[in-house]
Design a protein around this nucleic acid. Sequence first.
DNA 1: ATTTACATACCAACCAGTCGGTATTTTAGA
DNA 2: TCTAAAATACCGACTGGTTGGTATGTAAAT
Lengths: 199, 199
Amino acid sequence: MLEAARDVIRAKGYTATTVDDICSAAGVTKGGFFHHFASKEQLGVAAIAAFDTMAGALFGSAPYQMLPDPRDRVLGYVDLRASMIQGDVALFSCLMGTTVQEIYATHPELRAACEEGMSGHVAMLARDIEAAKQLYAPDAHWSAENVGYFMQAALQGAFIFVKVKQSTELGRECLGHLRRYLETILGQPSSDQTKERTQ
Amino acid sequence: MLEAARDVIRAKGYTATTVDDICSAAGVTKGGFFHHFASKEQLGVAAIAAFDTMAGALFGSAPYQMLPDPRDRVLGYVDLRASMIQGDVALFSCLMGTTVQEIYATHPELRAACEEGMSGHVAMLARDIEAAKQLYAPDAHWSAENVGYFMQAALQGAFIFVKVKQSTELGRECLGHLRRYLETILGQPSSDQTKERTQ
DNA sequence: ATTTACATACCAACCAGTCGGTATTTTAGA
DNA sequence: TCTAAAATACCGACTGGTTGGTATGTAAAT
């Protein structure tokens, strides 16, 4: 049911998604729906929380987490996200980024759920960024948390352009620029895989 | 009427915006509305076209366009956008970026209108980027158009985080990172205004 | 006289949420 | 262990309000 909501909302947007849409996608009836959720908004909050948990598990157990160098982990995150940009955009885009655009001013609880999920994700990234900064750019005058937000902003923006231009390649290329920026501020990488990444 | 649509849609999203919302915001009745527009979707297309025209005029006549160095014009664009990130997010965010998130899969005409507007905007940017590349990074293996898309992606993502975190400062800081990236790939700037921009 | 620019009243479809009821599972007592 | 009761899970018809869009009318402009 939360999975059905996740997929339908990413495809149609939160407001355009009806409770009946979710019910038929999940194979339940309206009575069953409102037995579990007090309102459509509460389902949204639950779906966002579930999405956040899933994302945390996905990236927390990703292979790049095993890399010893924190800079490699930061770049590994970007590479993994780039590799996920393929196929249907509704299946790899971010439920929170999609939802918050519509409801930030009208549904405070949903907005708060998005904020918690996204801030937590950035905090996870910021740990590796901070460690990499200590190693490679200790004197830089940017904050790790801020770089984390910029990474997510570039990612969310990439999703938007995948939707506008209907091109996953464009999304991957945006992440290529993000990667090059991170390489720059975290010092030059040891290998020369940089050139390959940037076409 | 198009202005009313522009502001209401940026605040509530396209789907949640009702025709009555726009009518009361514009001081017209429903009859008047449907005299000028065949449907809600057609109004959306017209509002996006008007928004695009306005944006083209705004940036086309901005002071930074007079700068002789194309690199300064690219950075001037980013600075202008950063300076616009203040106050109510509904008044400086992008109608197309907001709308396309919701309707990319359900309203093909609206999506096409967003694509045309955003691609055109990127093309405008790409001219200056290309000129700056010729001057400062002729051998770089990125395309000016691609950098333009990345700039817009970072900008759109910054808008999302202003909405999520309700902080215009965060948005400006994201553009600070974008600026630093552009400085890097277009060569170091002659003046030392870089440090000021990055806090 | 005809078109344009609006207004008013209205409609059919749709929406989130309700309500009474039923099947299933869990709990509790003998 | 068997059973009564209570809680839970789920169903599907219904509702009151809303929505995009229409039909009809009117005043001004061309």
